[in-house]
């Protein structure tokens, strides 16, 4: 899923400064699961912003709504009745959600409350860790299901580098060395010999380097 975390209150206060009636919109999917922008977080942030404004001797009116997904028009359209008399929309969705609202309501100011961090796994309660970098050409078959692009700090396909120390990455002792994970996994499934294969230089044009990506499925279009 997509993970995100809330900007600091100070940042959000500055972002919404000058707007007196805000529509605070949560998203009921990824950011609900990572406790960044679901219905509960909408309530908390709206309350924080109202109190923060009162502390400055001013008033802020908020309207709180949470839709199932900010990245699908069917759900975004449910906000139509709520946006009319709001000065701005504060989205608690990921970057996709913010842009979804901006595209659907072209004359409205749409502001972000979150920083989107990537695609991750819930490792345990309160801990999410990146597992996919969205490179556009999956190589997990070659590395035993451990992605060297997402989990090696250098995204090496022919690793490890010299910075692997006791199974940890040199950039942070809390971060596992991606290539140690690859090695351990390949060993566990008796496929260590496959690591002798030298990987060719990766074609990054399928990743962000190739420009904004899109998928066009003619069989699904109406």
């Amino acid at each position: 899923m997509i993970i995100a975390e809330q900007k600091t209150l100070e940042e959000i206060k500055q972002i919404v400064a000058g707007y007196n009636k805000l529509l605070v919109v949560g998203c009921g999917t990824c950011v609900t699961v990572c406790f960044a922008g679901g219905e509960k977080e909408v309530g908390i942030l709206a309350s924080e912003l109202r109190m923060a404004r009162q502390m400055d001797g001013q008033q802020l009116e908020t309207v709180e709504r949470t839709i199932q997904r900010q990245c699908e028009w069917e759900f975004v359209d449910q906000l139509k009745d709520a946006i009319e008399d709001c000065d701005a929309i504060l989205s608690m969705g990921c970057g996709v959600g913010v842009q979804g609202l901006a595209e659907r309501f072209p004359t409205k100011v749409v502001l972000p409350a979150l920083n989107t961090k990537g695609m991750a796994l819930t490792v345990q309660e309160g801990l999410w860790a990146e597992r996919c970098a969205g490179c556009g050409n999956c190589v997990l078959d070659k590395f035993g299901g451990v992605c060297p692009i997402a989990r090696c700090s250098k995204s090496l396909q022919n690793g490890p580098c010299g910075g692997s120390v006791n199974g940890k990455c040199e950039i942070d002792p809390e971060i596992d060395c991606g290539w140690q994970l690859v090695y351990d996994r390949m060993k566990a499934i008796n496929m260590l010999d496959k690591l002798y294969e030298v990987q060719e230089i990766k074609d990054w044009s399928t990743a962000r380097d190739g420009g904004p990506r899109r998928i066009n499925r003619e069989d699904l279009r109406l």
Partner: peptide, 11 residues
């Protein structure tokens, strides 16, 4: 207990 309950009380 929810953080929102506490904030509601203060608000």
């Amino acid at each position: 207990l929810d953080v929102l309950y506490i904030l509601d009380a203060f608000e």
